[in-house]
Computed example of a mutant assay.
Amino acid sequence: MLFIGDSFTEGYGAADKRTQGFVPRLAALRGWDDVRIDGIGLTGFLRPGYIEEAQNTYLQRLKRLHKSGDFAPNLIVFQGGLNDSRYGSLQLTVAVRDTLNTAKELWPGAQLLLIGPITFQTSLAPVNAAYKRGALIADVPFIDANTQPIIPQEENVRLTIEDRWHPNDAGHQLVANTLSDRINALLRETP
């Protein structure tokens, strides 16, 4: 399994990112024992990180991981949100589509999944919609965590760290549990 994402995927806010972030917790729930986490804060489908030269967009990282040749994932999960909010909807939709299609070309047998913004913010509706459109065009399942929030507004203080954005340990557990349930729902819907 390969997870590519931002600080949420990285496990930011958890007491121990390597073991207590939502990805390791989700992997444990699903029985996935070979998981590679490529989470880098302040990155997205279009945002490369702190500086443009960092070249850490999801597409650039995907290509580097493939070039390394040291693994072949059978599931690739992308997760993103706030970091792509500075870009236009059309530009973002195209970047999502292109990244997902490139993943299909690089690892033809891999299944793909895209998870939208995890923490509820109405301001992220355009990002969520662009992700959803890009996934639809690329024919990749999409988990909408914005219009169906995983961390609801009324629980934000209890489930996030001081920045009121990133999940704390309880929040990461809720994210893992909810994503596992939503993956089960996707599996039931898929013929």
Rank of each mutant, 00 (worst) to 15 (best):
I51Y: 14
L186K: 01
D181I: 02
N56W: 05
E53D: 14
Q79R: 06
A129T: 10
L2T: 10
E155K: 04
I161P: 02
D163R: 09
Q153A: 15
D33Y: 05
T102H: 09
R188L: 13
A95C: 08
V127R: 00
V96S: 06
V77K: 00
F120L: 10
R182D: 04
I143D: 00
Q79A: 14
F142D: 01
G80S: 07
A95P: 11
K67I: 06
A72S: 15
F45R: 06
P126C: 04
T19I: 11
A130H: 06
Q121N: 14
D6L: 03
N74E: 14
E189V: 01
P152Q: 09
F22T: 00
K67E: 14
V77L: 01
E52G: 13
R188C: 09
T147V: 06
E10G: 07
T93A: 08
R133Q: 12
D33N: 15
E53K: 11
W32S: 05
L59H: 13
E162A: 09
V23W: 01
R18P: 08
L106V: 08
P167H: 02
T160S: 09
P167A: 03
P48F: 02
S180L: 05
L62F: 01
A170H: 05
N83W: 09
Y58A: 06
A95Y: 07
F3P: 11
D84E: 04
P24K: 02
G88L: 02
Q79L: 08
